[in-house]
Design a protein around this nucleic acid. Structure first.
Length: 208
DNA sequence: CACATGATCGCCT
DNA sequence: GGCGATCATGTGG
């Protein structure tokens, strides 16, 4: 499988110049829904050859573990692929979908509680194409996130989550996308996006 | 804009 | 053996 591991050069940024401050472990260990809400407006960035690349998260989805039919950990399923979901909050869980796209999740709560937040869309720093990361697969492609990053530590490694200064985004809440197989869980209101951003994955569903 | 379809393969049953 | 936490492209209105 061919997968580019290097971030798009147009996503270069300077965390200090943007006034960003890193999330620490306790922030990730909170409830999955609060974390999913707080991740909208936060920044995800990675260090690559001494430079930072990333963007501002504008859309997320919460996946609630064993009780959530849409989650890979549904019913307590525990396989090598899903193992990072069972670890401590503040790690990445990355998987391949449809044979060609990666999806990145932020693991939440404590070890043994396999919940996570899917990063569905982000917007790059000024100058980056508006819709470069408008979708979970596109977000991973632009940042160079692949399966080998699954399990990466978001507190100590090359990937980080940052809080941004200033006002919090206005959130819209809807059911999650692409989980028609999930029974009743299909309707749960666990998708969150910044209603003032044009970079979310579901731009077609609303006119502005 | 709405909808349909193909691509492509690791993972789980 | 079947299918998916997606995306780009193509068709028609």
């Amino acid at each position: 499988m061919i997968a580019n591991r290097r971030p798009d050069s147009r996503l270069r940024l300077d965390p200090a110049a943007l006034g960003l401050s890193e999330w620490r472990r306790p922030a990730f260990r909170r409830g999955t829904v609060p974390v999913a809400r707080d991740l909208v407006g936060a920044w995800i960035a990675r260090r690559w050859r001494g430079r930072w690349y990333g963007g501002r998260i504008v859309e997320t989805e919460a996946y609630l573990g064993a009780r959530d039919r849409a989650a890979h950990s549904w019913g307590g399923r525990r396989t090598p692929r899903v193992e990072p979901m069972y670890g401590d909050g503040g790690h990445l869980y990355v998987f391949l979908v449809y044979g060609m796209h990666f999806c990145a999740n932020v693991v939440t709560r404590l070890a043994g509680q396999p919940e996570a937040v899917l990063l569905r869309a982000a917007e790059g720093p000024p100058g980056a194409p508006a819709r470069l990361m408008a979708g979970p697969g596109k977000l991973c492609a632009a940042l160079g996130i692949t399966a080998i990053d699954s399990g990466a530590d978001l507190v100590a490694g090359k990937f980080r989550i940052f809080r941004a200064p200033g006002k919090r985004p206005r959130l819209t809440v809807t059911p999650r996308i692409g989980i028609d197989y999930a029974g009743l869980a299909k309707e749960w209101p666990l998708r969150f996006y910044d209603r003032d951003s044009a970079a979310d994955s579901g731009y077609r569903e609303r006119k502005r």
